[in-house]
């Protein structure tokens, strides 16, 4: 018997050994590990990065009041981001399966075509669903675009569902009935309260009126923040909004000359507000596309600003 904690540790250890920095999850509600800025922003630009992190992900509409043995509104995505995609990235991934306790010589592993898209992020990629004995265990994507911008070099994004992997390895059926967090505590001990209460909140209680307002406010704030001009004060080595402080422009600025991260975080807040509204059934089918486009526009604006630092560096 293996525990969820053990699987998370094994994944982290394996990828740490491959040179990945093991990051902490982003401290906000996100729909998927891709939204963590380590992927969403750092996949852009020329700098090589290797990251891995476990990101709790919120999908309010996927809640099933704990009645579904394998689906919940908050679960973990273990995400690996490798830029540029190494030549042996598929082989590395397969080794990671052995590392967590599968056996590529005994299990049947297939890479099934799947072209991944995240419309809210303006992100798309080409890759596979990885099937292990018929179960989808990973999404394997070569990023082609983020924020509608062609990424170069291309990064590989590998995503695992640790809860499901643990169930599979143990031949267990339900996260709520079978899954052990560690030797003493079950997944249910730790997650049941929040899952049940959030289901009721997501589907029945969340104020749609407030969420619509929040969406508009976060959107406006994201635009305002991104539009706020900031300068690099070379003397004090800080970003500043105060023009008077800056004696001369310094090409050595080590960051984007814009508040990309705060604006991006506000876009993530919009996205979560929308996901809650969607779970509440408050968004008409024909309206959905429009809300998604609004989020995408915010994300794209952030990505474009993020890219400017590299253009400056080039010039």
């Amino acid at each position: 018997m293996v525990t969820l904690q053990e699987i998370l540790r094994k994944l982290s250890d394996f990828w740490a050994a491959q040179g990945c920095a093991i990051l902490q999850p982003w401290d906000m509600e996100v729909g998927a590990g891709t939204s963590h800025p380590a992927t969403a922003l750092k996949c852009l630009g020329p700098t090589p990065y290797s990251f891995a992190y476990a990101q709790p992900s919120r999908r309010p509409a996927d809640g099933r009041y704990t009645r579904n043995p394998m689906r919940n509104q908050r679960y973990v995505q273990f995400q690996v981001m490798l830029k540029p995609s190494p030549e042996n990235v598929v082989d590395l991934y397969m080794e990671s399966l052995n590392a967590v306790g599968f056996n590529v010589h005994r299990d049947d592993i297939r890479l099934v075509e799947d072209d991944w898209e995240n419309p809210s992020l303006g992100a798309s990629g080409v890759g596979w669903e990885v099937w292990l004995n018929g179960t989808e265990i990973s999404q394997f994507t070569f990023f082609q675009q983020m924020g509608g911008i062609e990424v170069s070099p291309v990064c590989a994004e590998l995503t695992y569902g640790p809860e499901r992997l643990t169930l599979m390895l143990n031949g267990q059926a339900s996260i709520w009935e079978d899954l052990q967090w560690n030797e003493c505590l079950t997944y249910r001990d730790i997650e049941f309260d929040q899952e049940m209460q959030n289901n009721v909140f997501n589907f029945e209680v969340a104020s749609t009126e407030m969420l619509f307002q929040l969406f508009d406010m976060y959107e406006a704030e994201s635009k305002r923040v991104l539009g706020t001009s900031v300068r690099w004060d070379a003397t004090d080595q800080v970003l500043t909004t105060r023009e008077a402080d800056v004696k001369e422009s310094d090409p050595g600025c080590p960051t984007s000359l814009a508040l990309v991260y705060p604006a991006f975080e506000l876009a993530l807040k919009c996205s979560h507000a929308f996901n809650l509204l969607d779970a509440r059934g408050a968004v008409a089918v024909t309206e959905r596309g429009r809300y998604i486009n609004r989020v995408r526009a915010l994300v794209r604006a952030c990505c474009l600003k993020y890219m400017e630092q590299f253009e400056v560096a080039k010039a």
Binding site: R106, D108, L132, N133, T135, M168, G171, A173
Partner: peptide, 9 residues
């Protein structure tokens, strides 16, 4: 092993 996994899913 594959049968066990297939039956599980």
């Amino acid at each position: 092993d594959v049968r066990k996994g297939n039956e599980w899913v």
